[in-house]
């Protein structure tokens, strides 16, 4: 891509829990479609050969000693990016849902919009090509979150559960310090808002899962809904300090709707 600065460093974080079947292909696709990206796989305590497969495919691997859940795994990636001084971090799921070919689209967008701290790939933007279809129950949940979040952060959010996101240094620093636990994506948007960091969605393609099992089974959907709703409403009343003074954010976070 033309607009990708050659001197900035990019890290693709691939959280993987028992995804030996697909993680190798994901890494190879990132190397092929986005060659200037470094890849780190966070093996979230897998019991299969996820870590070995990832290493053979040429990625660096963070092996968590036990399963932390998606939030803890991705946060390990943020800590890694902060310590290694990466300019941009993108999360690419290990199940093959995300298209690494779109990574440069995210980077191009954040570089042409320097006020943004995060760019989120959305499946549900009117202008995105519809290849992805989640089960109806999950889509309903996603739309409820989207409705609530759009009001909380006063900007349209269409796909609050999308993990296909690009973060700049400020966002990396924030989430290396504090990232939500269990189902982090929805809450992370609210955190960005509270820290006066800006985000925008752009339309992306997403595929059906290439293999393995989703971390959110249908039985857990109800629990997921309730947990995220609790996190959202509690998050509204939580004051958080900005990650570092002087980054153009307010001293104390906003509260209330």
């Amino acid at each position: 891509m033309t607009s990708v600065r050659p001197d900035s460093r990019h890290l693709a974080v691939v959280p993987a829990f028992n995804e030996a079947a697909t993680v190798g292909d994901v890494i190879r696709r990132i190397h092929r479609d986005a060659p200037e990206w470094d890849v780190v796989v966070v093996d979230d305590g897998s019991t299969d050969r996820t870590a070995e497969v990832a290493e053979e495919a040429g990625a660096r691997v963070l092996r968590l000693p036990f399963n932390l859940g998606i939030g803890g795994a991705v946060q390990a990636g943020f800590v890694f990016a902060r310590e290694q001084g990466y300019d941009y971090l993108a999360q690419v799921d290990g199940d093959g849902q995300h298209d690494p070919g779109e990574l440069d689209k995210l980077v191009a967008h954040i570089q042409t919009h320097p006020q943004l701290d995060m760019v989120c790939g959305s499946r549900f933007r009117a202008d995105s090509e519809h290849e992805y279809l989640a089960p109806i129950s999950r889509r309903t949940g996603i739309h409820i979150f989207a409705f609530l979040l759009s009001r909380f952060v006063r900007q349209p959010i269409t796909d609050p559960t999308s993990g296909f996101r690009l973060y700049n240094r400020d966002a990396i620093r924030l989430f290396a310090t504090d990232y939500p636990h269990d189902y982090p994506e929805v809450e992370a948007i609210l955190m960005l808002h509270h820290h006066r960091l800006r985000m925008e969605e752009i339309p992306v393609r997403m595929y059906a899962r290439g293999g393995g099992v989703s971390s959110i089974s249908s039985g857990k959907s109800a629990y997921y809904m309730v947990k995220v709703l609790l996190a959202l409403f509690v998050g509204l009343f939580r004051r958080r300090p900005v990650p570092e003074p002087g980054v153009g954010s307010a001293v104390s976070a906003e509260t209330g709707i």
Partner: peptide
């Protein structure tokens, strides 16, 4: 601790 351990091992 788990995150630190994973980073150090890497």
């Amino acid at each position: 601790l788990a995150q630190r351990l994973a980073l150090l091992e890497e």
